[in-house]
Design a protein around this nucleic acid. Structure first.
Length: 298
DNA sequence: ATCCTATCCTGTAGGC
DNA sequence: TGCCTACAGGATAGGA
């Protein structure tokens, strides 16, 4: 579910509202997350620690605690960090981690599908963690250049949509924003990365941070699962130009948006704006203003 | 090496 | 209403 903008939204909220709090009790669910190696003593090691910083690389969130401890987390498809200053809900399913702070506030990690990750790592060894070690640059911390992308793409035959999803090349883009970026860059998602021209990479390089930043400003995109730290939906769904709009008119040219499957995942694009030609001088689609509200999250 | 497929889970929407 | 299928924002092991 969550891509860079959703994780960054949560990170900012942790930074502004949870920083400095000290843990009083920590409870782990017995239900195991798919990718978490949770060592014995997890809860005990986190007890009595002060939250010092919240960092992010790509879709990974890193929460630093006192005494050199970092909680590495990935939201997978359905993970949520939720903060309750006062009363937490009585019944909430799939809560894997419950942290209670000394002031009575609580921080929970919920993940119904259990594709997420929680791992407690010594801060100094974080960069050697297998999940982080292979990640490419974060496109917000290090905005990509046309030249850089072209270099990474040299000699690869992978479709550009799947290229954008590969976290070892760039860390943070997921299935929604890959489609959005390519639509705004006017590049056909099926094009082989190694065959794209410099002008196309230039447009892609510009749209990557543009789309991710705009989405972050709107606290991400909520279809169903994703929520902010305050359990609120993100509103970038109102700005999506192609994702989940199969059959609806392209906001630039009116051509019906198409859905195809690449790597067992949906890709949405405009067959006209993103015509499969090299060096096309297409108009760059602009984000829509206002527009009809998207489906309300449940 | 590179690319692709299947798989891990639960919840929900839509067709009948 | 209920049953069934398809699909969902991700990463990754293993095979071609």
């Amino acid at each position: 579910m969550p891509e860079l903008p959703e994780v960054e939204t949560v990170r900012r909220m942790l930074e502004s509202h949870v920083l400095g709090r000290v843990t009083r009790s920590v409870r782990l669910s017995s239900q195991k997350l798919r990718s978490s190696a949770i060592p014995a003593g997890f809860a005990k090691r986190l007890t009595g620690r002060r939250l010092l910083a919240a960092r992010r690389h790509g879709k990974y969130l890193m929460i630093d605690w006192s005494d050199g401890l970092t909680l590495l987390s990935h939201l997978g498809m359905s993970g949520r960090w939720l903060f309750y200053p006062d009363q937490p809900p009585n019944h909430l399913e799939h809560v894997h981690l419950r942290v209670e702070f000394a002031d009575g506030s609580r921080l929970w990690f919920q993940d119904p599908r259990r594709f997420g990750l929680l791992r407690l790592v010594p801060t100094e060894r974080l960069d050697r963690d297998p999940s982080l070690a292979l990640l490419g640059p974060d496109p917000i911390a290090t905005p990509p250049t046309a030249e850089g992308l072209m270099e990474i793409a040299r000699n690869t035959r992978i479709a550009v949509k799947n290229f954008l999803l590969d976290q070892r090349r760039l860390a943070g883009i997921g299935n929604i924003y890959a489609s959005e970026i390519l639509h705004r860059a006017a590049v056909d998602p099926r094009r082989r990365s190694g065959l794209l021209g410099e002008d196309e990479w230039r447009r892609i390089a510009a749209e990557i941070p543009a789309v991710l930043t705009e989405a972050t400003e709107r606290m991400g995109t909520t279809f169903s699962m994703y929520r902010t730290l305050w359990n609120e939906p993100g509103t970038y769904g109102d700005r999506l130009t192609v994702y989940d709009r199969a059959g609806e008119p392209c906001l630039i040219c009116g051509t019906p948006i198409r859905r195809i499957v690449q790597g067992q995942r949906s890709t949405f694009f405009c067959p006209s704006c993103q015509a499969k030609r090299k060096g096309t001088k297409s108009r760059i689609p602009q984000p829509r203003r206002g527009g009809r509200p998207r489906r309300r999250p449940s």
